[in-house]
């Protein structure tokens, strides 16, 4: 495992921890899109179907369990926790799941590396992860009101994507036969979706002002 891959995993982990910290300690999910969180839960469910049958390393299994567990825990908090759910911005979080899930599933049926069930679900998870942040970005655009923890959550997610691209470039040059167009293109699309957010995040950080997205 190279340094880019490991840093990517760690920033991904940080993003989840920041979100859980916000929800658990402040008891608020203001500015957090439930739609995005439900899509992530579906992403991990579809991708980690091999968690019991395919053992890669202890690190790998533990991380998979953390991502699966935390994504379902976050969804539970927003939907069911009697205090947290009151701060959920239902009026602005109106993105339709099916609008993203269905095209991703059809695309996975059409374009995949191997047409076995687990392979299609794995490919579907790649496509869905690429666009799962959209409801969150739309919510941030609509509400304008971005607190520090929500901003950091999206920042860490974007950093994770950028580091994974570095990891793929590194692996391409150091490992034989390491070519995965589907993963790379969907990963690149996903990272580009954060570009706009990153621009405003860095500007607010540089000028030391509160993060605000334009209309």
């Amino acid at each position: 495992m190279n340094i880019f891959r490991f840093s990517g995993d760690m920033t991904h982990l940080m993003s989840v921890l920041v979100l859980l910290l916000k929800i658990h300690t402040i008891k608020s999910c203001a500015g957090i899109s439930l739609k995005t969180q439900e899509l992530y839960a579906l992403v991990f469910l579809a991708r980690y179907l091999d968690i019991v049958t395919n053992f890669i390393s202890l690190y790998n299994t533990i991380m998979k369990l953390i991502f699966l567990g935390s994504s379902f825990m976050i969804v539970w908090y927003i939907r069911r926790h009697r205090i947290v759910r009151r701060s959920y911005d239902k009026e602005h979080d109106t993105f339709r799941h099916l609008f993203l899930v269905l095209p991703c599933f059809i695309l996975a049926l059409l374009i995949n590396e191997r047409s076995a069930f687990k392979e299609i679900m794995w490919t579907f998870s790649l496509y869905l992860e690429a666009v799962a942040i959209l409801p969150q970005l739309v919510l941030l655009q609509r509400t304008k009101n971005i607190d520090n923890l929500t901003g950091q959550y999206v920042f860490f997610l974007g950093a994770y994507r950028a580091l994974y691209i570095c990891n793929w470039i590194y692996r391409y040059f150091t490992e034989p036969h390491y070519v995965h167009w589907i993963t790379w293109i969907s990963g690149l699309v996903q990272t580009l979706l954060y570009a706009d957010f990153f621009y405003y995040y860095f500007n607010s950080w540089k000028n030391n002002v509160k993060l605000q997205l334009p209309a």
């Binding site: 995993d9 890669i56 991502f67 036969h177 390491y178 995965h180």
Partner: peptide, 10 residues
């Protein structure tokens, strides 16, 4: 068959 190295990623 070569091992599917991409599957060791998360």
């Amino acid at each position: 068959l070569l091992p599917d190295s991409i599957k060791d990623e998360l």
